[in-house]
């Protein structure tokens, strides 16, 4: 995989991966679409998406890299169902590709997966390719 993949190339491959993994139409996969809310992704779909991204971009995605579930289940970082400030800092460190400002306003654990967008996925791939 070339390291100079353009943003539009990345988007088009991410779009193809999501169409195949989620059985949605290409037009539905817009940068702003959320994976769970708009595209109907369920937890097992994330493994499918990870496999397809690995194949499409020739990258290796470790467990928890795209979605740091270890932080969301840690009692150090979650209090009464909400991610605390230490957890938010940790999430920002682990997910530099994602815009967490909306999540930070209401850091309910359930919200993170719901707010993940197609653009976040593209940013994630771009981040991986640049690494």
């Amino acid at each position: 995989m070339s390291t100079v993949a353009s943003k539009s190339e990345i988007f088009s491959k991410v779009q193809e991966a999501l169409v195949d993994a989620l059985g949605v139409d290409e037009e539905e996969v817009t940068p702003q679409a959320t994976l769970q809310g708009d595209l109907g992704a369920e937890s097992i779909d994330f493994l499918d998406i990870v496999f397809r991204l690995e194949k499409a971009f020739g990258i290796k995605i470790e467990r928890g890299e795209l979605f740091p579930e270890d932080i969301l289940t840690s009692t150090d970082y979650v209090e009464e169902g909400k991610v605390n400030s230490a957890g938010l800092a940790k999430l920002k460190e682990r997910m530099p590709f994602a815009d967490l400002s909306r999540f930070a306003a209401d850091p309910n654990v359930q919200n993170l997966a719901k707010q993940l967008t197609v653009q976040d996925m593209c940013n994630f791939v771009e981040h991986k390719l640049a690494a």
């Binding site: 493994l47 499918d48 496999f51 690995e54």
Partner: peptide
Amino acid sequence: LEQAKDVGAS
């Protein structure tokens, strides 16, 4: 077998 990880395979 297409792909396999510790959490699952396709």
